[in-house]
Write a protein that binds this DNA or RNA. Structure first.
Lengths: 331, 331
DNA sequence: ACTAATGCGTCACAAAATGACGGATCGATG
DNA sequence: CATCGATCCGTCATTTTGTGACGCATTAGT
């Protein structure tokens, strides 16, 4: 029985397509586990495993480099219908939120899920794709594409704390600019965009780089230096970021909605504490503790004339003046 | 070597905690695969497998019911750092988009990912949680919670095409109403809400039920009847749904943005075909082929006075009249 | 009380895994 | 170009493991 377990461990050690492991590396790592056999046995194991599992090797000189076939993904326990369905839904949502280069890592899981759903479909003739739909409220956006290899390198640099060298296009139509030493500080994900926060050379001011504008990137040997006292959270909150969090304190929002608009409020509270009061004139008063930020403004403005902001006074004034400017604009 | 493969197949057959399989069922299903042994062997296999794998059995009389332990999830190949990181990001995004009862199915995967990330953290002291952040533009929403078991039952009913019996609260504060025969037609996911579309009794008009308002639900034996010609896609598009898709045809949108607002346009095109033209007066003209729907309106209105809609004429008129109404409102 | 289904212990035999050894191949080195 | 080390592969005797058959024990259902 040791044999089965050892082979299981070997399967666990095999990396996915792209990386690889040699027989002697397996032997070495197996020694640290409870279990050990001759290298010969491991060679035999791999040949045997190849018969039943989607694994292959690449021969380099005299050495074999083993890995899983591309795109394969087993899960134990095997995905049941609900899990597969959830993966299907996640895929629908996530492709517009995360860049393709990230979603790619989940592709095998999605494939796996689709297979299970397809199999179920065949078995029962239920044809579920006709029965389940995701409706998105958002304007469909298409993802800017990130150069191959950039995501991996930048991820690695951030995670391992290494310096990088990169060429970066500040605007889509501009020529790329060379940054020979960047110290990565962190990554920020905003609606399908990835920002790399980094300092350049000895300059301590953090800069922002969009990953899809990075033309080329190279991992350097040297470790990155993080400016004293820097935290990513602090940086985001400091308002340096694209959507500055203006004030962190809560305000007491009062807004009057048309009843037809208020359907959404009933169903999606803004935060935990929300009070709704209905009036006879088909309007609904919302009271809530919220953060005033760009998102809130966008959300409220999105209702157009279906909402009237009553309080706080400052926000009402802001909306008033926006209307004034709009009035002039559309005159 | 057949042994390892057979045991692998057995592991594949074991369902996750909640369901279960007996020794004889395994033997039966194993017969359909290429491989067959005595039941005695399978009994021995399971005992052996139990030594190394997180599986257990529940004894019921003389029969053993086997399944995987709760919460366990293996993946082959084992998740690498990038995949684990992607799962981490997906979790951050998805919990506000899908109801908890659905996300629960992915929990083991997320756990798995977190473990790998934690392990990596320990190994390298990189402390990645300080280096990667997801910033959401949206107003934070809290999920309405769905009663335990409701999701599963409704999913099953939809997928297997079975009738259900349910009690439903039309409004949060109202008493529940009994629906003794519902024919499920489909599920629609909208921003963290799940709608069940179903007909009641012999009535052919589809009704909408919010899953989190379903107090109790029971699967019935009888098959559901789907009204002739009904398709979920058609139903959604017909405008019967919460956000009617007003017109399906594309229009040619022209809008003038303030430069500071236009930063977002540069980065997130609305659809494939987008043209941007910059002017000297710090304004940017956007031209694009888009669908006019509620989402587009919300999105445009969200920019407040930072955008002027130029074309099509109809949309411009609409914005004009909205401004008129706002003007009166804030007077 | 009987029967069928299921699990378990044991034993002899069959099948496999193992370690040791030597030969073959290939890249690196000087 | 000879040499060395690393690696893989074939083979064989030995050890370990897996297997089927059989009988007994236990339990649910009739």
């Amino acid at each position: 029985m040791d044999t089965l377990y050892r082979r299981w461990l070997i399967l666990k050690m095999l990396p996915r397509h792209g990386s690889s492991i040699t027989t002697s590396q397996i032997a070495e790592r197996l020694d640290t586990e409870i279990d050990a056999r001759t290298i010969r046995s491991i060679q035999r194991d791999l040949v045997e495993l190849e018969r039943h599992f989607p694994i292959t090797f690449v021969q380099e000189g005299r050495t074999f480099h083993w890995c899983w076939n591309e795109g394969w993904q087993f899960t134990f326990p095997v995905m049941d219908l609900h899990t597969a369905l959830t993966f299907h839904l996640v895929r629908e949502y996530i492709t517009s939120l995360l860049p393709t280069s990230s979603v790619r890592f989940l592709e095998p899981f999605f494939q796996n899920a689709e297979e299970i759903l397809a199999e179920y479909n065949e078995l029962t003739l239920a044809h579920w794709p006709d029965k389940i739909r995701v409706v998105s409220r958002k304007v469909k956006i298409t993802q800017p594409s990130i150069m191959k290899g950039v995501t991996e390198t930048v991820y690695n640099a951030v995670l391992m704390g290494k310096q990088i060298k990169a060429s970066y296009r500040k605007k889509d139509d501009e020529a790329a600019q060379e940054f020979s030493v960047l110290h990565p500080l962190g990554l920020v994900f905003v609606e399908g965009l990835i920002y790399l926060i980094a300092t350049e050379g000895n300059n301590l001011i953090p800069l922002r780089f969009l990953l899809h504008r990075i033309v080329e990137v190279m991992l350097l040997e040297k470790s990155a230096t993080i400016p004293e006292g820097f935290t990513l959270q602090g940086y985001i909150e400091s308002g340096e970021f694209i959507y500055p969090v203006m004030k962190v304190e809560n305000i007491r929002l009062k807004a009057l909605f048309q009843r037809k608009a208020s359907a959404h409020l009933h169903e999606i509270p803004i935060t935990g504490k929300v009070r709704l009061k209905e009036f006879d004139d088909d309007r609904v008063l919302l009271e809530a503790e919220v953060l005033v930020n760009r998102e809130l403004r966008c959300w409220l403005r999105g209702f157009g004339a279906e909402v009237e902001v009553l309080a706080p006074e400052g926000l009402r004034e802001e909306f008033k003046s926006t209307v004034e400017r709009l009035k002039i604009m559309y005159r």
